[in-house]
Design a protein around this nucleic acid. Structure first.
Lengths: 225, 225
DNA sequence: TAACTAAAGTCATCAGATGATTTGATGACT
DNA sequence: AGTCATCAAATCATCTGATGACTTTAGTTA
């Protein structure tokens, strides 16, 4: 019995168009055939063609101009990259984020402002323990500290990617690893602040690297079980 | 004169629905009103409603189930994070990608397989010069080399993020910086391969860092003009 | 040549009808 | 009571036809 992939006509029409675009049949900037032609090509009605085109428009692949035509904006779905990242394993995502921490600390050592250091010291003092307001709140405070380090790097792209990984990881991790990961103490955090404040990039990177190593090790142990 | 944002009905209908969803009018998992009701609510025809819903479906906010209804999958656009990354400045994106290069080389030194090294050597020997097949082809070959280093790190998340940055950067850079960036020679590339092959993570990271520094410096100069 | 006009081409939107699928209710049978 | 088959309602999927709005281009005219 053949397990046909049950999907609707709109989806398959959109998929057809997407692959034609990806194959370069219509280069970027080019106008694709009009609706009537697509109806013939895809063998579906105009409404279905329009919905398929609308889907690709909302994905940033096409652009429709009333009275003129439908044009190719990009050959690959930009959002697909993000999906692929999200589908990589938790371990790789965690490791990638940890590397961002390391390199962000290095940059922060070189570029931090006095306000950055003040913020880090404040977040560190507010961090407290799990006992204060429960586990979830503690994780939020801890995260705020690490995010502030990345922010001190002065690189907005790294901040956004860091946030993305954080969101993706917390989505997955949810309830599965509750409390199983070692949480470095305040002293380890304080060392990071001092290393960044010292302005020594290698020292800052090393402090974060040392910080992350045992966490990643434990994560590996948990995931290999 | 009021500069009304000229948009079509489908877009505004989709925007209405998106904001209702974001406002929590229909929680995640909930069924939204049926098409006929949306027609009344939004004051547009059924076809327009369907196109608006289709747009949100392709963005991952909604899911339609024939015979059952349309359900909320998420309250925020997951692709929004990616858009924010793309909107950060070229310099930050470039730097972030360079940091990925560095840390990927570090991991590659620890985890590379013999096949990885063979691939790197092959890509290096095929790299050639700008004279071979034109500038664009040369950039592609050069990129393939650096991507292979990231791939040798064994971290798929880093590969995907690297690809994302590469795509975003090449989109922007396009014609603006044609040929203005220094291109490290084969010797610098060979040093990276040897450092990775040596299995020394610090040496591998340092070789890529030294590699990237002048490029980033020149990029800063170009962008500050 | 330049500006205007008209026509063709294209997407945008509406309206109506029918099919496919899911879901819940009904009722018969054990 | 519980289980199963059947049926009807609700809902999305798809097709068809028609009209409007906008852009582009060719032609025309001053």
């Amino acid at each position: 019995m053949k397990q046909a992939i049950r999907t609707n006509l709109t989806e398959s029409a959109a998929t057809s168009l997407r692959s034609e675009i990806a194959a370069g049949r219509w280069p970027v900037g080019e106008r694709i055939p009009n609706e009537a032609t697509l109806v013939e090509m895809l063998g579906v009605s105009r409404g279905t063609v329009r919905e398929a085109v609308r889907a690709l428009v909302s994905q940033g692949l096409l652009e429709t101009r009333q009275g003129s035509g439908t044009y190719v904006l990009a050959t690959a779905d930009p959002a697909a990259a993000l999906d692929r990242v999200r589908q990589t394993c938790l371990r790789d995502q965690w490791e990638a984020r940890a590397l961002l921490d390391v390199e962000a600390a290095r940059l922060a050592a070189l570029r931090h402002t006095p306000a950055d250091i003040a913020t880090l010291r404040r977040l560190l003092s507010e961090r407290g323990t799990v006992a204060d307001g429960g586990r979830e709140a503690f994780i939020r405070r801890d995260l705020a500290f690490h995010r502030a380090v990345v922010r001190a790097s002065g690189n907005q792209a790294m901040v956004e990617i860091y946030d993305f990984f954080t969101a993706a990881i917390t989505d997955v991790i949810g309830s599965t690893l509750q409390g199983d990961l070692p949480e470095p103490n305040d002293q380890a955090h304080a060392q990071i602040v001092e290393a960044v404040a010292s302005g020594d990039p290698d020292r800052a990177a090393a402090s974060v690297r040392a910080f992350m190593a045992p966490v990643l090790l434990q994560l590996d142990r948990l995931l290999s079980r």
